[in-house]
Design a protein around this nucleic acid. Structure first.
Lengths: 220, 220
DNA sequence: AGTTTTTTGTTAAATTTTTTTAAGATAGTG
DNA sequence: CACTATCTTAAAAAAATTTAACAAAAAACT
């Protein structure tokens, strides 16, 4: 479950947000002590921060910049309508999105979803067509069956997935796999690709990985 | 220069937008005929579409969906403030962002910048006439068909594209291809050019690469 | 620690795709 | 018209990739 940190001093709004987020399937956390905001947020390992620009003790934009120095955590700024330059500034300071108060709850949820989705590309669980790809467990599943990928197969698949639709050179894949530390027969890659393809075929996914001779591979 | 298609029926707003975008360094294009909107947009190879949800002839959301079926081109929806569900719906139909009318020009530019930046990570796509030349995918496409180039064909085409309108000597091309490492029959180049021409012809593009005897080739 | 199983890398032969070569045809130029 | 640069086509060659079988290494188990 995704964890969202609410940084907002109005107790009423805070509670409303908390309820709404919990109701929408997130785990809402409210920042208590604004004086140690940066530290608390960094330490809390949340998936997203909802940050009001008007908070006591520390200015919202300052906090934004200070978080950005240390972390890439997605941040949505909450700005007040009467100050449009806030929005412009926030974005250029590294916010992922902003929303003006008072906001429509549906839109807020939508934006949270969009930002998380964008950020989630660095995550453990991704999907490919009808497959769930769980990197941590090293398993592919289509709801019915599960199939294990070996370490190398998963490395390759993830790399292709992160570059889906683009040609990925064999060199890049080899660097990703073996980091050029040791010399490895470049056919080892071919064999691993071949094994990955065989597993995808077991799910009925064929020709997902195309060969572009002389250029690399491309995941369709 | 990034090309932006404006889909909007209010002539005044259209002109304002056009000026603003041009001033900001974009190339603005205004859609003229709403009845063939999908086709025109797909064929125009723009980098972004600014799509008003309230347009005549075809409903904005329908158009959005119809474009999305064929293309990944970034789309920002322009919605009216009094109808908030539009925003929610648009996003779920595949828009990359939306903005409510009346909008702050700075914010619009910011959003355009953000969306283009996000999109730009996926492909370094250039265009040639009605063709998209996607180096990462190694394909040419005209919206309908896709055709991929081999390594050498892509090298040549990119080189010509980078020097479009100028004569490129055969020697330069050969250096670009083989780096003068080894001796290669200079007819190899001719054959490669010939094959590239054949592929362009499949898109109906003929005489794009002209021969200038004794001097080289020129891409028109 | 020793055994078994799984994963990974290697090799060699087979296959596929791309590139080069070669040779005759075509077209521009003086 | 003669000369040369370029084009086209098909066949040959080269390069890249695939596959299968096996060996080595790593991991899991007893």
């Amino acid at each position: 479950m995704k964890k969202i940190m609410i940084v907002e001093d109005d107790k009423v709004i805070c509670q409303e947000l908390e309820e709404m987020l919990n109701h929408a399937g997130y785990e809402a956390v409210v920042l208590q002590d604004f004086s140690k905001a940066t530290e608390e947020i960094l330490a809390s390992s949340v998936d997203l921060v909802l940050l009001d620009i008007n908070i006591p003790v520390i200015n919202g934009e300052v906090l934004l910049k200070s978080i950005r120095e240390k972390s890439e955590v997605p941040i949505i700024m909450v700005t007040s309508r009467n100050n449009e330059t806030d929005e412009v500034l926030s974005m250029s300071f590294g916010a992922d999105d902003y929303i003006t108060k008072p906001y429509n709850p549906n839109i807020l949820l939508l934006r949270i979803g969009a930002v998380l989705k964008r950020a989630g590309k660095n995550n453990d669980v991704t999907t490919y067509r009808n497959l769930n790809v769980n990197a941590k467990k090293g398993v592919l599943s289509d709801g019915e069956r599960e199939l294990w990928l070996t370490k190398n197969e998963m490395i390759i698949f993830q790399f292709l997935l992160n570059h889906q639709g683009s040609i990925v050179s064999r060199d890049d894949l080899m660097t990703d796999l073996w980091n050029n530390d040791e010399y490895i027969n470049d056919n080892a890659l071919t064999v691993n690709i071949s094994r990955l393809r065989a597993k995808l075929t077991e799910f009925g996914i064929e020709n997902a990985i195309e060969t572009r001779k002389g250029q690399g591979y491309i995941l369709l």
